[in-house]
């Protein structure tokens, strides 16, 4: 049976991890390889490196980082943040990334999803999506945001995920901004709505504060995978603990 995936997200600035697990021992917490190894040993199913540098120089450094990590870590790697062109995606995949996550650039140029899917396959093409619950004229709307969640696009979440699927996305990472960073739980309603509307896997993101939240989003939120940063970053829970909790609740997970 296909297991549910637990995916830690590591924020990277200029080639250094700025939001990863905090080590208690004498390990360089900014070192992407050390971070990746720690998560691998703890049972992570995939890793996401998210580039917050957002510059041309940053993308070059990111490709080098991927090269270094894949020399020593043998697990799937997704890279997101700042990927604007097919050339950016190509550089990262050739460096060894399994998948690239397209976010703002895909909204500005939806054809980019099709181009990446055509060249590297649907399986390597991820739509990253920042969604926000906003109220317009007294009505709640689920709106797509870009530029790190700063700019509303007026595009509705449900329209965009279906369009992205038909263009060639093979997976969707749904980050709900209202929930992000709250550690109060994922947005179960929106995650379930998106997951039910598409035939491709959906990774839930934003709001994880406890193993129960992850269980909820995998069950009630119909998510295929759960991405989290803070709870692993601050050692609140280890990935191993989360997976054991899920296994005890009857969710299929890979235990290492």
């Amino acid at each position: 049976m296909l297991t549910k995936r637990i995916i830690p997200c590591l924020d990277v600035d200029k080639g250094r991890v700025v939001k990863g697990v905090k080590f208690f021992d004498h390990v360089d917490a900014g070192d992407p390889v050390a971070q990746a190894r720690r998560y691998q040993d703890d049972g992570a199913d995939e890793l996401v490196f998210y580039d917050i540098t957002a510059s041309h120089e940053g993308r070059e450094i990111m490709a080098d980082l991927v090269k270094k990590v894949v020399e020593q870590i043998f697990m799937p790697l997704t890279v997101g943040g700042g990927i604007r062109t097919l050339a950016d995606a190509t550089r990262l995949i050739q460096a060894g990334a399994e998948k690239v996550s397209l976010n703002s650039a895909a909204v500005q140029n939806p054809k980019l999803l099709a181009e990446v899917a055509r060249k590297f396959g649907r399986c390597a093409t991820v739509l990253g999506l920042d969604a926000n619950r906003v109220t317009k004229d007294g009505v709640e709307v689920w709106e797509v945001f870009v530029a790190g969640g700063r700019i509303g696009t007026g595009i509705k979440v449900m329209d965009w995920v279906k369009q992205a699927e038909s263009l060639g996305a093979g997976e969707i990472v749904l980050n709900v901004m209202n929930a992000d960073g709250t550690t109060a739980g994922y947005d179960l309603e929106m995650t379930a709505a998106v997951s039910d509307a598409v035939k491709i896997p959906v990774v839930a993101s934003g709001g994880a504060g406890s193993p129960q939240h992850i269980l909820d989003v995998l069950k009630q939120g119909h998510a295929d995978a759960a991405l989290a940063a803070s709870i692993f970053h601050f050692n609140t829970y280890s990935i191993g603990q989360v997976k054991q909790f899920l296994a005890d609740a009857g969710v299929p997970v890979r235990l290492v």
Binding site: E171, P201, V202
Partner: peptide, 17 residues
């Protein structure tokens, strides 16, 4: 086979036995 009764996500993505 993405038949409705199985309700499978495609691609098959992740760890399996």
């Amino acid at each position: 086979d993405v038949d409705q009764t199985l309700n499978l996500k495609v691609p098959h993505m992740g760890w399996n036995q």
